[in-house]
Amino acid sequence: MSVPLPGTPVAPASPPGRMDRPPGPRRRLAAALHRHAGVRLSLLLAAPLAWLGVAYLGSLAALFVTAFWSTDSFTGDLVRTFTWANFHDVLTIEVYRTVALRSLGVAVAVTLIDAVIAFPMAFAMAKLASPRTQRWLVIAVLTPLWASYLVKAYAWRVMLSSDGLLGWGYGLWATIATLSYLWLPYMILPIYAGLERLPDSLLEAAGDLGARGWRAFRTVVWPLTFPAIVAGSVFTFSLSLGDYIAVKIVGGRSQLIGNVVYDNIGAANNLPFAAAVATIPVVIMLVYLAAVRRTGALESL
């Protein structure tokens, strides 16, 4: 038998079994899927996309449509005829403007407070702590998320009550403090992730080129982690804007947009008006996201 020289093509022996029989339907299907990446992708995405389209966007659309209806003030039944009346009321009646602005103010305050608390915390976690401590700190930040929202809100109620640990009493400031506490992890985690991605060598390079701490922070750390802060703010801002439970528990007699919506669905039985009020935070969020998009923060979500 002659030994083939390297580089000489050798006819491959037919592999036994497998290729001789015609492939079964499952194998044919698998092979077809392998060839058509597009089909494969759409099959995988079909269910989640249907969920997103029907349940999420669909309900938003339904909300929007409902906002143009009204209720019969005598029977309380829905009247499905188009009217601008709800939006007209929302925009012209003083109290709704006040509530909307107050909600916006609370959301902005919560976001700023969280950013100020979260940044040093995230920086210590990402850049100063040993890997072991880092792990524990991440767990410590995450554990409050395992506890029920209500328990945490009532815990703050107890702390804030006039004979409680803090004793600030209830009201708008109490609401801001409670919401800041509740959403803090949502600010810490994106900033932590952003700082983790920031190579240590950039900080060293700044120091090497003569920059002291504050200057290095201002010229290198801040501009490179700003998108992460904005990403965190999307969470704290939107969660605060829609909240109505914390304010019920610690807000005293203060009202936010969420309460107006809640009261109109429940006590007032005016679903169309509630829907019109509920579009306010949606519009604010869309404006905010459009503004945020320019910073490139949405890529770091």
Binding site: A205, A206, R212
Partner: peptide
Amino acid sequence: PFERDVNTVFQDYALFPHMSVLDNVEY
């Protein structure tokens, strides 16, 4: 480091990604 009369060329170069070449050199 900022008090020492040495400068470093880092293994990963550590260029500031948000600055132009000129701004990096002028830093």
